[in-house]
């Protein structure tokens, strides 16, 4: 039994569009698994299904041997344990940085204002933004906003973090500061599943890489194998395009 098990997951939008066509993937505790694949192959969709932001059509998802997909699942409870960070930050623009971070701990975990703010300040220190606690999101750079978004997800003390291309919307010089943070989380043993186009980074931090293609996991394995010696034709083709685009 793995920590996170994705079994034969099928996702259809309407009757006609099938985005995921039977995904099978396991994530062990303290593992970092990278999802790679061409744009539109369903990486974001898969991540959104895992924390219940989308319903799945068939199959099941299990966390800690508990079924977390389908009818009757307490999604609010599930989402406490599964943090997600999006490509476009999605901070709440009307709240200060600290309020962004403390909202869910206070309303969902029912922490007191003092406790929540203490935890929030600690996290801000961690992402090196303690001076920005009183700022509003629009007053921060993209990299800073994304670090706040990560801190906001961490404030719920999730068991697993899903990161959906969290550096894609950033200017190149801001990517490093966010990746450093993810690297740190990985070294502390945070279980993570991340979709990324940063192949160099994926190769460095991941325990396992899964190549998604046409709605299935086309090939998976340790990073040395996927990047160094892929067995599948499609994987090779995809990586070749990435290298040509200068992203590895």
């Amino acid at each position: 039994m793995s920590f996170l098990e994705i079994r034969n997951v099928v996702k259809k939008y309407d009757e006609t569009v099938t985005v995921l066509k039977g995904i099978n993937l396991n994530v062990e505790e303290h593992q970092v698994v990278c999802l790679i694949g061409p744009s539109g192959c369903g990486k974001s969709t898969l991540l959104r299904c895992i924390n219940g932001l989308e319903d799945i059509t068939e199959g099941e998802i299990r966390i800690n041997d508990d079924r977390v997909s389908g009818a009757g699942v307490d999604v609010n409870r599930l989402r406490r344990d599964v943090g997600i960070v999006f490509q476009s930050f999605n901070l709440f623009p009307h709240m200060s940085v600290l309020d962004n971070i403390t909202l869910a701990p206070r309303q969902v975990l029912r922490l007191s204002k003092r406790e929540a703010e203490a935890r929030g300040m600690e996290l801000l220190k961690r992402v090196k933004l303690e001076q920005k606690a009183k700022s509003f999101p629009d007053q921060l750079s993209g990299g800073q906003q994304q670090r706040v978004a990560i801190a906001r997800a961490l404030a719920m003390e999730p068991m697993v973090m899903l990161l959906d291309e969290i550096t894609s919307a950033l200017d190149p010089e801001l990517v490093a500061e966010v990746l450093d943070l993810v690297r740190e989380l990985a070294s502390e043993g945070m279980t993570m599943l991340l979709a990324t186009h940063e192949m160099g980074f994926a190769r460095e931090v991941s325990s396992k890489v899964a190549f998604l293609f046409e709605g299935v996991v086309h090939e998976e394995g340790p990073p040395e194998q996927i990047f160094g010696n892929p067995t599948e034709e499609r994987t090779r083709g995809f990586l070749k395009k990435i290298i040509e685009a200068g992203r590895m």
Binding site: R48, N51, L53, V75, N76, R77, R79, R80, G83, I84, F86, S88, N90, L91, F92, P93, H94, L103, A104, Q107, V108, R152, A153, M156
Partner: peptide
């Protein structure tokens, strides 16, 4: 809708999302 998605992903209920995230922004 990404604001709703972000709020729900943190475990806030529909009512909490409305009250703390969506309505305060809509009011302005």
């Amino acid at each position: 809708p990404s604001q709703t998605m972000a709020a729900r992903s943190l475990g806030l209920s529909f009512a909490q999302t409305m009250r703390f995230v969506i309505i305060p922004q809509a009011i302005r």
